[in-house]
């Protein structure tokens, strides 16, 4: 009886899962390459960057906030790390932590402006999206950074871009982050507070929850995750560009929404977000395989987002009416 109930409420993720299966079936019929292991691994690899950022976005959206600055935050972290790796001022391990601290600090700036100054997160992060992008340009003087010295490429940090057997290390990093994020959200008091804050912040505040700090931590976490994504990307591509991460904020938000979260807050899961991120990567991958012109890619993603949310609405309309 009880287990049945739980399965029914999980229907939200089931909807996304269904969309993913449909897309995969279509792809495997139309493209002979699609189901090959190498291609599937590639899809998951392409999920990494968006997936990691979408984890942080899930927390923010459930807490009733939004972060538009993640693409720029990612670029600033990448450029900052790139500069430090390049001029060999510090050992790679120190740079690794400095990049994460940079991410957390920039995330905290967002969080403090939202929670302590009281400016809506949409506006704050719209502003910092522009500001952080300028930081990225300024750090590199408008130029990309590449051809890293041995002290960087030979270090353990560069292993983030390597492979174990046929499987890229970054996939493991992403999966571990998803598992930790799931546990943090579902099994700890912090996760409980995130849901309560996004569900009804007045009631949460009156229940003794520090809603400001709950949100601040989510923004800081977002920054931290952007830092990790930036390090992985640097190690994988061996280059950092000032324009990297552009539009990533919307991809991350789309993945979270695909996963069944409500922009109004209080609802969403890490599993859903994971599936959402995989869908995005699968669609992109599929379009390359089917030789769809590049300029149609974003359009298709848009269609998938709307269809997935439509299915979700149809599934849950009855609930909503009650």
């Amino acid at each position: 009886m009880n287990t049945k109930k739980i399965k029914l409420t999980n229907a939200r993720e089931f909807g996304v899962f269904l969309v993913l299966v449909i897309i995969m079936v279509i792809m495997s019929v139309t493209s002979p390459v699609f189901l090959k292991t190498a291609n599937l691994v590639n899809i998951v690899r392409q999920t990494v960057e968006i997936g990691i950022m979408a984890i942080g976005m899930t927390y923010l959206i459930i807490a009733g906030e939004l972060d538009l600055s993640v693409g720029s935050l990612f670029a600033t972290c990448a450029m900052f790390g790139g500069l430090l790796f390049k001029n060999q001022m510090f050992p790679a391990t120190i740079v690794f932590f400095l990049v994460l601290i940079c991410g957390i600090a920039l995330g905290c700036v967002n969080g403090l402006l939202v929670t302590r100054v009281g400016i809506p997160s949409f506006i704050v992060t719209l502003g910092t999206m522009k500001i952080y992008r300028s930081f990225a340009y300024a750090i590199g003087n408008g130029q990309s950074i590449s051809q890293f010295p041995e002290s960087a490429t030979g270090s353990w940090v560069w292993k983030l871009g390597a492979k174990i057997g046929n499987i890229p290390v970054q996939i493991f990093v992403m999966l571990i982050l998803f598992v930790i994020a799931h546990i943090l959200l579902k099994k700890t008091t912090y996760g409980y507070k995130v849901y309560a804050t996004g569900g009804n912040d007045r009631a949460a505040h009156l229940s003794g929850i520090n809603i400001k700090n709950t949100r601040l931590v989510a923004f800081a976490m977002m920054g931290f995750l952007c830092g990790i994504a930036a390090l992985i990307s640097t190690a994988y591509l061996n280059t950092v560009t000032t324009t990297s991460g552009e539009g990533r904020e919307m991809d991350a938000i789309a993945a979270v929404i695909l996963g069944g979260a409500a922009l109004s807050g209080g609802r969403g899961t890490i599993l859903g977000t994971f599936l959402g991120a995989i869908i995005m990567a699968t669609v992109k991958n599929g379009m390359v395989l089917l030789n769809v012109p590049v300029f149609w890619q974003d359009g298709f993603i848009g269609i998938v987002v709307i269809i997935a949310v439509l299915i979700d609405t149809l599934f849950h309309r009855k609930d909503a009416k009650r």
Partner: peptide, 27 residues
């Protein structure tokens, strides 16, 4: 002010007593 409508009965009832249903932050 009283309820978090997106949450379950149990979650609503315990949102102010998190200390009593957790060990060092783990529910």
């Amino acid at each position: 002010d009283g309820l978090i409508t997106s949450m379950s009965i149990k979650e609503n009832a315990q949102v102010a007593v998190m200390d009593r249903i957790s060990d060092r932050g783990m529910l």
